[in-house]
Simulated scan of single mutants.
Amino acid sequence: MIPSLDAIEAVLLDVGGVMVVPDPRLLGRVVSAHGGTTDLSVVLRAHHRGMAAGDSDGAFDWDAYHGRLLRECGVPEEQTAACLGDMQVMIAERPDLWSHVLPGVREGLAACAELLELGIVSNSNGTVEQLLRDEAICQVGPGPGVVVTCVVDSEVVGVAKPDPRVFGPAVAALRVRADNVAYVGDTRAFDLAGARAAGLTGIHVDPLELCPQRADHHHVHDLGEVAPLLARRAMASTEP
């Protein structure tokens, strides 16, 4: 059964997969050297299909992600091993790989902020707060983006999703009970599992509707659909 959103008072959001994805131009350079496409729309779709292939209720399978990504990008099977090697080199050399801002993110986040208090919880490498500010997405306090209460970076706090402890600092900053907080993420393995273990209600960003558990939790196609989902909750709670 899909959990109710009636008691939600605040929203925490992931960054990777919700606001930004791997830069398709960088991915395209690698796959095109091995017979794949440079079409940005195809590469983005390949990323989403790769994430679905690697996702599960257990551990995330990065090998499955990369394998599906390369196939969807048109890399021939005989080139897969070499392409994977080059992909790993690029990932190591480009800590800013996850920096392509998805369409409508700023508007979607602003719409959420009109309804509820917001915060960020991201598995990252210590750079997510600066990335969000540089891209004018959000920041704590005044700035170019939407104001949020907190930005929790797993590298900074020393624990990462799906470990539920990563949500502790954010929930404390929001000053609400964990069961009154929703978490918006793009994976079951990292985001929904961690949120559920921490007592939060998960909202799954599933652009291509590939999640097999449609009746288990809330789904949206993108960040732009989160505010309308929460607004419906708010309207329902005020009906006589």
Rank of each mutant, 00 (worst) to 15 (best):
H47V: 14
G28R: 06
R196L: 09
D216L: 12
F190I: 07
V148D: 00
L116R: 14
D86N: 14
P162E: 04
G168V: 15
V148Y: 05
V128R: 04
A92V: 02
A182H: 03
G67F: 03
H34Q: 13
C83W: 13
R29A: 12
V184F: 02
D57P: 01
D61A: 09
H48R: 14
Q88D: 13
P103H: 14
Q213M: 02
G202C: 07
A33N: 15
A82S: 15
R177V: 13
R71T: 14
D96I: 12
G224E: 01
V176T: 08
G85N: 15
Q213P: 01
M1N: 12
A195R: 10
V157K: 11
V147T: 09
H100K: 02
P22H: 13
A52C: 14
R175C: 10
L116P: 03
G108V: 02
V159H: 09
D23G: 13
G126H: 14
V181R: 00
V43C: 04
A113P: 04
T37C: 07
V166A: 14
P164A: 03
S124I: 06
A198Y: 06
S4Q: 15
Q88S: 12
V184T: 07
V75D: 09
E77R: 10
S56I: 10
D206N: 14
A197W: 03
A82L: 15
D186P: 07
V101K: 08
V176A: 00
G67V: 06
D61E: 03
E114M: 05
C138H: 00
R233S: 13
V31G: 01
R165W: 11
A111T: 05
A46I: 15
S32I: 15
A189M: 03
L97M: 04
F60M: 08
T149L: 00
D206H: 09
D55Q: 02
P103D: 06
M235H: 00
L118A: 03
R233N: 08
L97D: 07
H204T: 05
V226E: 00
P169E: 06
R165V: 08
L84T: 07
A7V: 08
V151R: 02
E155G: 10
T38Q: 10
A53K: 07
I120F: 08
P164H: 04
D163V: 08
T238A: 02
V75K: 05
E72S: 13
C73K: 04
G141K: 13
L109A: 12
R94D: 09
S237R: 05
A193F: 00
P240L: 08
